[in-house]
Write a protein that binds this DNA or RNA. Structure first.
Lengths: 114, 114
DNA sequence: AACCGATATATTGTCATGCTATATATTGAT
DNA sequence: ATCAATATATAGCATGACAATATATCGGTT
């Protein structure tokens, strides 16, 4: 099957991805990783060194909030969207779609649409 | 109207954009800038500090070749796709579309398609 | 003639961010 | 007991889009 996406492709839209998967339910880091893998058919496999710093950044920006569950030996830090995060998600999604349209105009001229 | 796209959004697909606008005809740096502005309805305005280093990089990678026209006082460096550049264009366009599909699945769940 | 905005290219250094490598600890299966 | 999978964290690196700065031409206005 297909390879992983080039990592540079993720830049600028990885925030949006994380916010997106959190919109339906709270998740913890590792489960976000699994979720993105599943949705992307294994083409997005965030390394821990990407994922955790990113989550910390989103939390510092108050786009998500976290709750540490240490009730079991398996420590899990659950993340959920804040109101600010939801707003950001909607705005970024809108911008992404417009950007994608723009790209499609450019690359649509020489190759068939998917 | 709408603002310019966030610059981080361009990362990873800016190469593809440049290669795309060169597929039909050779262009020089400044005209590439104008072309992208036009196609994007002013939402992509590459600063010179982005554009020229990028073109140099594409040339170093043999994806484009350049020819300097100094016949007039107005120096212009014309760029055209190489065969390697054309191949890269097709491959990157394919990958971009697959990535975009992936994003659409993610952000499509909570907001209407454009 | 002087001025100015648009045209045209180039380079230095800065910043944001995705990554590798490394570290730590728990859990279940062999 | 060993090992893969689960789960989080951080230091340091690499990449590339950018601001700032520099240089020079050209056409129109004053």
């Amino acid at each position: 099957m297909s390879d992983k996406f080039e990592s540079e492709l993720l830049r600028g839209s990885l925030d949006l991805m994380i916010l997106s998967v959190l919109v339906d339910q709270p998740l913890y880091g590792y489960s976000i990783q699994q979720q993105l893998q599943k949705v992307s058919h294994q083409r997005i496999q965030l390394p821990a060194g990407t994922l955790y710093p990113l989550l910390h950044r989103l939390e510092a920006d108050k786009l998500v909030r976290s709750r540490l569950d240490a009730s079991t030996g398996r420590r899990r830090k659950w993340y959920e969207l804040t109101a600010k995060g939801k707003k950001r998600l909607v705005a970024q999604a809108k911008q992404w779609r417009e950007y994608a349209n723009c790209m499609n105009v450019l690359i649509g001229s020489f190759a068939p649409a998917s």
